[in-house]
Lab assay of single mutants.
Amino acid sequence: HYVEVNGKKIQATSAEEAEKIAKKFAKIYNATVLDLGNYYKVT
């Protein structure tokens, strides 16, 4: 599981952790979290 933010991949140990990381970055960048199955993308 990982999160992609601005083209950078951030490794996460679980889907739950990946979701938390994605939501945190989405809040910082006022962005949207896309759940793409095996990873989250912040756009």
Rank of each mutant, 00 (worst) to 15 (best):
Y40P: 04
K9H: 09
T13G: 14
V3L: 05
T32D: 11
G7A: 02
E17M: 10
E16L: 11
A31V: 09
V33N: 01
N38Y: 13
V5Y: 08
E4Y: 08
K23E: 10
T32C: 14
E4S: 05
A31R: 02
A12H: 02
A31Q: 05
Y40W: 14
K8P: 00
N6F: 15
L36I: 05
G37M: 05
D35Q: 15
F25D: 01
I10C: 13
G7I: 02
Y40I: 11
L34F: 05
K20F: 09
N38T: 12
A26V: 06
I10W: 08
Y29T: 05
K9D: 01
V33Q: 01
L36N: 07
Q11H: 15
A18K: 01
D35N: 14
I28R: 09
E19Q: 12
T32Y: 10
I21Q: 02
S14Y: 01
K24P: 00
Y2T: 04
G37D: 10
I10A: 00
V5H: 05
Y2R: 01
K8N: 08
E19P: 00
K24N: 10
N6R: 09
Y40G: 04
E16P: 05
S14A: 02
V5I: 13
H1S: 09
N6W: 15
E16W: 09
A12R: 02
H1G: 02
T43N: 08
V5A: 02
V5W: 10
Y29D: 04
Y2F: 10
K9P: 04
L36Q: 07
E17F: 07
L34I: 14
A18E: 00
L34Q: 12
A15V: 11
A15I: 14
A31P: 01
S14G: 05
N38C: 12
N38I: 09
N6H: 13
T43S: 11
V42W: 03
K24C: 15
S14R: 02
A18W: 05
A15L: 14
V33A: 05
D35M: 11
G37P: 02
V3R: 00
I10S: 01
K8A: 08
H1I: 11
Y40M: 06
Y39F: 09
L36P: 01
T13V: 12
K9T: 08
I10L: 07
T43R: 04
K27A: 12
A18P: 00
K20L: 12
E17H: 14
A31E: 06
E17D: 09
V33Y: 11
Y29M: 12
K41A: 08
V33R: 00
D35G: 04
Y2K: 03
L36E: 06
L36G: 05
K20P: 00
I28P: 01
G7L: 03
N38R: 08
I21H: 01
T13L: 09
E17C: 13
I28F: 14
F25R: 00
L34V: 14
G37W: 05
A31T: 12
S14H: 03
V42K: 02
I10M: 06
V33E: 01
V42A: 03
K41E: 10
I21M: 11
K24G: 08
E16S: 11
A22E: 01
L34R: 07
A18Y: 03
G7S: 04
N38F: 11
T32E: 13
H1M: 12
K8S: 09
Y2D: 01
G7M: 03
E19M: 15
D35K: 14
H1K: 11
A26Q: 08
E4D: 07
I21F: 04
V3F: 02
Y29N: 05
V5R: 00
K20T: 10
V33M: 07
H1A: 08
A15W: 12
